[in-house]
């Protein structure tokens, strides 16, 4: 059973179409990234799937329950960390967690044990008795996620979990997300950072203007656009000439004494290129370039933003 099944999801505010027929399938235990620029509809998708707002059209099943008829059952199994921190600013870190425990109707002992464990796990033990006003951005975000985890959700929505964080906090957050994934929790995260989706997600859907414009593993998405190549650099023009003769499909860069040779990826293709080059040509430097998600992203969304 898939954790999330969505077909034809639509949402508009007056004339402003935010979601224009979104289809999504997220497997149990998968880390799924919804990638897109600001205004693409990422947050709206999360708000619909987490039962906050109704869709105008389309069907959505979350954890096996239809959103329209089983919202209560959906809520019992999900955890949501929104884009803006949803912590109680007048309660300490520990009190925030205990409040969640009460609302989840956990028995007192379990409530305390779970809160203590989460404070330790999220490195908030020292801050536990302080108000969130004294926290850094990263600490607030960690408390926010710890609150989400009090109920051991099977599916977690993370809406732009690292937006506004400094690089160190971002890496801490990535590690936390990876740890959650190892525990088998299904994660739907939204991000506008391509690197983040690449780092964390098993599968990525690129959302643009309310439509999914591409969907697949990071590797599949990268393969969808050309641009993978090997770059060979030489110490003199004679070597470059020799290499260009041996590899006629390469593109010369005379100024840099470099040759750019298309490469499908994988060791086999690399060996074949080197074999064609032969032993006689002295190569000063070799580097392998795979397109990154930025290339994918711009290729997929370019026509829209013109």
């Amino acid at each position: 059973m898939n954790a999330v099944c969505v077909t034809g999801l639509r949402k508009a505010y007056h004339d402003n179409v935010v979601l224009d027929g979104v289809d999504l399938d997220i497997g149990e235990g998968e880390v799924f990234a919804l990638l897109g620029p600001n205004g693409a509809g990422k947050t709206t998708t999360v708000r619909i799937l987490s039962t906050l707002i109704p869709a105008d059209a389309g069907t959505a099943t979350v954890l096996g329950h239809d959103l329209r008829t089983g919202a209560g059952a959906v809520r019992a199994g999900i955890g949501v960390t929104g884009q803006f921190s949803a912590v109680d600013n007048l309660l300490t870190g520990a009190e925030n967690l205990l409040l969640m425990g009460r609302l989840l109707h956990l028995p007192a002992a379990q409530r305390r044990a779970r809160a203590t464990a989460l404070l330790e796990r999220f490195d908030l033990v020292e801050a536990a008795r302080r108000l969130p006003a004294t926290y850094s951005g990263g600490m607030r975000r960690r408390l926010d996620i710890a609150m989400t985890l009090m109920g051991r959700p099977r599916l977690i929505f993370l809406d732009e979990p690292t937006t506004g964080l400094d690089p160190r906090s971002r890496h801490t957050m990535w590690q936390l997300i990876r740890d959650l994934a190892t525990e088998g929790v299904t994660i739907l995260l939204t991000t506008q950072y391509l690197e983040e989706a690449d780092q964390l997600a098993d599968r990525i859907a690129v959302l643009d203007h309310g439509r999914i414009v591409a969907d697949g593993t990071p590797a599949e998405l990268k393969r969808r656009i050309p641009g993978a190549h090997i770059r060979l650099r030489f110490s003199d023009a004679a070597s470059l000439d020799a290499a260009a003769g041996a590899l006629p499909d390469g593109t010369r860069d005379d100024a840099e004494l470099a040759l750019r040779v298309p490469h499908e990826g994988g060791i086999g293709s690399l060996r074949a290129i080197l074999a064609r080059l032969g032993d006689g040509v002295a190569v000063a430097d070799l580097s392998i370039h795979t397109p990154d998600l930025d290339d994918v992203f711009f290729a997929l969304t370019a026509k829209e933003s013109r």
Binding site: S50, T51, L52, G72, R75, A76, I78, G79, V80, G82, F84, S85, A86, V87, D88, N89, M100, L103, L104, M147, G151
Partner: peptide, 13 residues
Amino acid sequence: TGGIIDRFRTMAV
């Protein structure tokens, strides 16, 4: 406006 009501609304509260 602080977002915490959204948290409550996504819980089985």
